[in-house]
């Protein structure tokens, strides 16, 4: 029960750090925009961040640095094996 997708933050509304005032973000992927709730993120997102979206809620801010490092390793492995 875990379908969740990464989408990019284009707007944030609500009061930074106050999660009781309807914390909302608009996120985007490939031309599709969706309103999502920020009640569960453990850090307040910035414009351009990627959030992992599950059933209308952001559950995590995607760690882009971690993703780049991992992909780089995988690509090096793929090149090395050629």
């Amino acid at each position: 029960m875990c379908l969740a997708v990464p989408m990019r933050v284009i707007r944030v509304s609500g009061l930074e750090g106050d999660f009781t005032l309807t914390p909302l973000a608009v996120v985007e992927a490939q031309g599709i925009e969706k309103d999502v709730r920020l009640d569960l993120v453990d850090q307040w997102p910035e414009i351009g961040d990627y959030l992992i979206i599950h059933a209308g809620f952001a559950i995590h801010t995607l760690d882009e640095k971690e993703a780049e490092i991992n992909l780089k390793l995988l690509r090096e492995m793929a090149e090395g094996l050629k």
Partner: peptide
């Protein structure tokens, strides 16, 4: 799955 998961998890979500 480092881009989406860390060692300690999402403390805020667990607390809620």
């Amino acid at each position: 799955y480092g881009r989406a998961v860390n060692w300690q998890g999402n403390g805020r979500a667990m607390a809620l």
